[in-house]
Amino acid sequence: MTYSIIGRCARTGRLGLGITTFSLAVGGRCEGVAANVGICKTQAFPNRTNDPLAIGLLAQGHLPVRVMAMLAANDSEHDYRQIAIMDREGRIAAHTGSGTRGWSGHRIDGDCVAFGNGLVGPQVLAGLIAGFSARPDEALEHRLMRALEGGRDAGGQGDATGHRPERSAAIKVVDRVDYPEIDVRVDVHATAVEELRRVLEEFKAYEEFYRQRGRDPARAIPQDLFAKQLEARRAGRPS
């Protein structure tokens, strides 16, 4: 039980992954996100070596469709995996093995691929894509967040017996630097998508402060003071 989206911002070329699932700490299993290379995420019954291997193959110059073929040849349990790959130019390959459980599938749409398993139905993929496509002018992390909310609002994970809670979630976005620009996580929570929205909003409020503090330490104000100013701005008072 998982639903995910890999997307590319056509304006900036930034790449990102949004994911949520019933399993705990899913963000700790998302190492296949590499700046200037691409993204690979293996889920359902994942093979942890797939994603680092795929990033290495993409970096060598292989196309996503070729990378997928090599992953298949390298794994006796490929039928149990669900995999999506996007390179830095936005080329996509996806695979949903017949051994994945519940309603399971993927859908490629322009600059994104939505994929999931253990879902209430194909409407969840439609919800992910609609969320991603709703505001193409926004920063990629916000589009990925809207996608996850769209998937959740379309019913998310579960079956005829009921909904399954999202217990962990993560968003990662890479740009030019060799570490993720955006990297927010919720590891154990009763409503992880809602909590991820809270973490993302709070991080976005600090993002520029953190970046500038690293680049120009001599002029950085203390974080307490920044936090107080932020609180004042939110309350609508002059700081």
């Binding site: 700490a25 963000g27 700790g28 299993r29 190492e31 942890r48 070596t49 994603d51 680092p52 291997l53 927010v184 996580r185 919720v186 590891d187 809270r198 973490v199 709070e202 991080f203």
Partner: peptide
């Protein structure tokens, strides 16, 4: 000895 973490846990906020 893997190319991925054995343990990778976070509390963000």
């Amino acid at each position: 000895h893997h190319p991925y973490a054995d343990i990778d846990l976070r509390v963000d906020l």
